[in-house]
Write a protein that binds this DNA or RNA. Structure first.
Lengths: 123, 123, 123, 123
DNA sequence: GTGGTCTAGACCACT
DNA sequence: GTGGTCTAGACCACG
């Protein structure tokens, strides 16, 4: 699990995004305990306060919850996770179609290209 | 036409990318004359030297050519442009599939989502 | 009957207030016998000495009296209790009006709001 | 303007509440510029980071907004402020009625007491 | 050991 | 000068 933090955007944002991915992709399952803030921070080579801020934001988004004395956990509400996953996927698609449009491809052409690629892989 | 230059990457790279888009998307057609370096630089609020560097790079890639007396022109070899377009599209697709994979979607699922969206739009 | 003691103020003060409430609200009636200090302390999960101090204070305020052989009793002078009740109510009102004033409400406006609420409840 | 911070609750929460009061009571009007974070922090004898956290929370609640280079301002949406004022007033009323109920007063009795007080003041 | 809060001091980008 | 972010290091409450 590499964190790949770049300096040109707030680190806590990048931490959030990275942990979101870990949750959404299923690396952490609903109800799982997260590493402690300090551990997590050490793992990402980041100050505990920064990690704390990232996790607070995720808590505000209801992706994780805190049991004050025993740690932080992934939400057990998997619909919450599904919603977030959909939302991120939508954003990914939007960016993609936008990029292709700038290149001069219509939605249909973009779709054809993608279908073509997948057909190739099947062979 | 907004240039939207950010400070966190070399300016001339961003200029290149932007002009590439203008060519590939058809804003500039094969054989079209480009604005003068000075003009172009002014338009992008950029030092002429920087613009010059960007255009030189594009020339090295055979996307534009210089006629010493009359200025710079888009290549007339549209296959050159098509190749570049394919290459950028491929990159765009790669990034997209990669992003979706990180979210936990298989290629097939990603394809289904995209097809679904396009079906929606047809309605 | 939960005691809800917090650690940030002297325990015996909190005990006093709580017992005052029990008396004033009529949970204990004039002349009622109180539980023994030991019992009372156990009930509140508190050191008997602390409870003893609380009860002594209440005795000084003439809310309870001690019959050396048979225990502690609520005062039979219900005017005493009424006075205390008035005094606490006054404090409650003062705090309320003060809070509303800080929010920018005049006394009249505060009164209107309260009347309005009670009218709602009657419906 | 005294800040009266106590140590038994998070300072940033108390700062929030205090500034809320300044806004709701009309000390700061919609559109007013707030002191800079550092100034405000000095005024409250608090670390700038702590003040920053308090102000961030108020921004999240849409009571203030930030103009990155020129400072922080009270929202111009006075309905936002009105909503907050109602909400705080409601809480104040709830606490008051609750306290009076614990003292053994019914809502009607509480109301009568309050009306009585105001009549006194009119004399 | 857990999370939460606070301070002190620094650096950055923007204008 | 503005706000925003980050680090280092500390203390607290809870169990």
């Amino acid at each position: 699990m590499s964190w790949n933090l770049s300096t040109d955007r707030p680190i806590y944002i990048q931490l959030m995004e990275h942990i979101q991915l870990l949750i959404i992709s299923g690396y952490y399952k609903p109800g799982d305990k997260l590493p402690s803030v300090r551990e997590f921070a050490a793992e990402a080579s980041v100050n505990p306060n920064t990690m704390q801020k990232a996790l607070s934001e995720l808590e505000r988004a209801n992706l994780i919850y805190t049991n004050r004395t025993s740690g932080k956990f992934i939400t057990e509400d998997d619909s919450m996770i599904a919603v977030m996953k959909q939302s991120l996927a939508k954003e990914e698609v939007r960016k993609f179609l936008d990029g292709m449009k700038k290149l001069g491809f219509t939605k249909q052409e973009t779709l054809d290209i993608l279908n073509h690629i997948c057909d190739d892989n099947k062979k």
